[in-house]
Design a protein around this nucleic acid. Structure first.
Length: 494
RNA sequence: GGGCCGUUAGCUCAGCUGGCAGAGCAUCUGACUUUUAAUCAGAGGGUCCCAGGUUCGAAUCCUGGACGGCUCACCA
């Protein structure tokens, strides 16, 4: 059954719409051009007295959604909301004429209205457009949520984000900040000689991260394609091709569980710089976050979920082993001894049976150290077993030249000096393939073409990926990734 | 996937021990030319998430399911 016919509130509004048509008032015209936004008017005239406003010449054309409607017998106050904010309009029968006032009285909260007239200051001192002419710009058929409590139901807020954006200015602000952050990242990288590229979202071999992919099918070619879990292997092909500084800001897709920090599709900025090491990228990352923080907030301090976070560099750098020693209270010898560390891991309740030492170390790190990493911290020197694409450390080949950036107990970025030895790369792929054969669904597949690219020669390079959604969460004090993704993944309704 | 919690009018929410389905805002009718959640008088509006069960009687108790939130696990 069509909801439109059963819901009396919608039926009433459809009746009004038909009445407007009968009166010769088009309910959806498109010939009204506002001259100013609400914010522009406030900015220019908020400080003017009633007398000063009276002396001003010319009319202001404003347009927006009616968010409040206080109607008297022959006059009404309206709050119009546009992209910049809100402005009050006073509509009086004497000023707009009896015919216009008659249809105006039938308008609902939620309708779009255009108003033209001079600025006045009301008895209570509010800057107001005194309408000489009003236009219906778009009829709304559904009632907005209640004016005082607004829309709070999270399910409705996510499913009908448009209503959330209408009703909740803070939500609107979050997504404006998201847009600004992405622009700042783009400008920052561009200004340092990085070029933005687009690489395949649909890949025959999903690579660049250890995650389960979404699978799709190309009909004409009758082949399986995977939505990418990372752009890494394609961006490195571009470095082989001579784009020595390259980046991409785009979606990745991972077929994993959902949580406050995980959405199946999420946005990542990934960048590669030739003739640089992961240590260079630590400096670059500090600069990037400082740049974003200072332009956005004017300070490198921020508060996330009640905790103050100071982004002022330099940020501490700790190896994975050092972090485990510090937070588990183990000695270097104990951390390095596979038996002792595995026993410690089991005591924590971790299932580490059959795991190589490096993987156990990574597990223990996440368990004992991650919860302490509130202030920005670079964790370096990951075990080679969990880093199939990273360059080995020259002093200790059990570890790789890699870092992860932690802020507020969360992994925000992952970077490493790239493995550009094609023979080592092929060997690592083979090890991953062996793990895969043993049932590790997230282990890497062999990408022969990528190895071929490396065989042509890739300059020494460092690369990094930063989770944009988590970065936005940090800068908008958002507790859930759903609060920074406009249309988070949901099961279908009904 | 596990645990806990939730789903009642367009929205925000009450509804006790099982006994006629409630409020505020919104809507409709009337009054009102300076309001700020305008005010005053009146009226209408329900698949109590769905399906079973218990009962003389279920929004309420029981079972199963759907959807959501929080959280744990996995992952970034």
């Amino acid at each position: 059954m069509d909801h439109r016919q059963t819901n009396p509130l919608i039926a009433q509004r459809i009746q009004k719409l038909e009445e407007f048509r009968r009166l010769g008032i088009p309910p959806y015209p498109n010939d009204f051009r506002p001259s100013h936004t609400a914010a522009e008017i406030h900015r220019a005239h908020d400080d003017k007295t009633a007398e000063a406003l009276q002396e001003m010449e010319g009319a202001f054309r404003v347009a927006g959604r009616i968010m409040a409607l206080r109607s008297f017998g022959k006059a009404a106050f309206v709050k119009l909301q546009d992209r910049s904010g809100q402005i009050q309009v006073l509509v009086q029968k004497n000023a707009v004429g009896p015919d216009a006032y008659a249809w105006f009285r039938k308008l609902d909260v939620g309708d779009f209205l255009g108003a033209t007239g001079p600025l006045i200051r009301t008895r209570t001192g509010e800057l107001t457009v005194e309408a000489r002419e009003v236009r219906l710009l778009a009829k709304s058929l559904r009632p907005l949520p209640e004016k005082w409590h607004g829309l709070t139901d999270k399910e409705t807020r996510y499913r009908q984000r448009y209503v959330d954006l209408i009703m909740n200015p803070a939500v609107r602000e979050t997504f404006l900040r998201r847009s600004r952050i992405i622009r700042l990242v783009r400008e920052f990288l561009s200004s340092r000689g990085f070029v933005e590229m687009e690489t395949p979202m649909m890949q025959p071999i999903p690579g660049g991260a250890t995650a389960r992919p979404f699978v799709t099918h190309h009909n004409a070619l009758d082949m399986i394609l995977y939505l990418r879990v990372a752009p890494e292997l394609y961006l490195k092909r571009l470095v082989v091709g001579g784009f020595e500084r390259v980046f991409e800001i785009n979606r990745n897709f991972r077929n994993e569980g959902l949580s406050n920090q995980h959405n199946p599709e999420f946005t990542m900025v990934e960048f590669y710089q030739a003739y640089a090491t992961y240590e260079d990228l630590m400096g670059l990352t500090e600069e990037l976050f400082v740049h974003v923080a200072e332009v956005l907030n004017g300070t490198t301090r921020l508060v996330y979920r009640g905790e103050e976070i100071d982004l002022t560099p330099p940020w501490p750098r700790l190896t994975v082993r050092e972090a485990v020693m510090r937070h588990a209270g183990l000695t270097e010898a104990e951390v390095d001894d596979p038996e002792t560390l595995a026993a410690y891991a089991r005591k924590l309740g971790l299932d580490v049976d059959g795991m190589p030492h490096g993987k156990v170390l990574a597990e223990v790190f996440e368990e004992v150290a991650e919860p302490h990493l509130v202030q920005p911290t670079f964790i370096t020197q990951y075990p080679v077993e969990v880093s199939p694409l990273s360059r080995r450390n020259e002093q200790d080949p059990r570890y790789v030249d890699r870092f992860e950036l932690y802020i507020a107990r969360r992994e925000i970025a992952n970077a490493f000096s790239e493995l550009n030895d094609p023979i080592d790369q092929l060997e690592r792929f083979r090890q991953q393939a062996a793990q895969r054969a043993q049932g590790d669904e997230e282990a890497h597949r062999i990408d022969e073409d990528f190895v071929r690219a490396l065989e042509y020669g890739m300059p020494p390079t460092a690369g990094e990926g930063i989770g944009i959604d988590r970065m936005v969460m940090l800068f908008t004090d958002s507790p859930s990734i759903r609060d920074v993704i406009l249309f988070p993944h949901m099961r279908p309704e009904s």
